[in-house]
Amino acid sequence: MSQRTCAACDCELDAEAIKVKLGGKTVEVCCEECAQALNEAEAAMTATANGKN
Rank of each mutant, 00 (worst) to 15 (best):
A8Q: 09
A49T: 10
E42S: 02
A49F: 00
A49P: 03
A47R: 09
A17P: 00
K21G: 06
M45N: 09
M1S: 13
N50M: 14
I18V: 13
K25T: 12
D14L: 09
C30N: 00
A37M: 11
D14C: 10
A49E: 14
Q3E: 15
A41C: 06
K19H: 07
L13S: 05
E28L: 02
L13F: 11
Q36E: 15
K19G: 05
T46M: 09
A7S: 08
E33Y: 15
T26V: 12
E16S: 13
V27R: 01
A15I: 11
A47S: 10
E33C: 06
L13D: 03
E12Y: 07
A15V: 12
A8N: 09
V27S: 01
E28M: 02
T26R: 05
A41M: 11
D14H: 03
A8E: 07
A35R: 04
V29W: 01
K21E: 15
V27F: 03
C34Y: 00
N39V: 04
C31G: 02
L38P: 01
L22D: 03
A37I: 07
A8K: 03
N39H: 05
E33I: 10
A44C: 06
A47T: 04
L22N: 04
D14K: 10
T48L: 14
C6F: 00
G51Y: 02
E42D: 07
A15D: 14
A43W: 01
L13W: 06
V20E: 03
E32C: 02
G24D: 04
E42H: 01
A47V: 03
C6N: 03
A43T: 03
T46E: 11
L13Q: 04
E42M: 03
E28P: 00
N50Q: 15
T46W: 07
K21W: 12
L38A: 05
I18K: 04
M45H: 11
N53V: 12
A47M: 08
A15G: 10
E32T: 10
M45A: 15
Q3C: 06
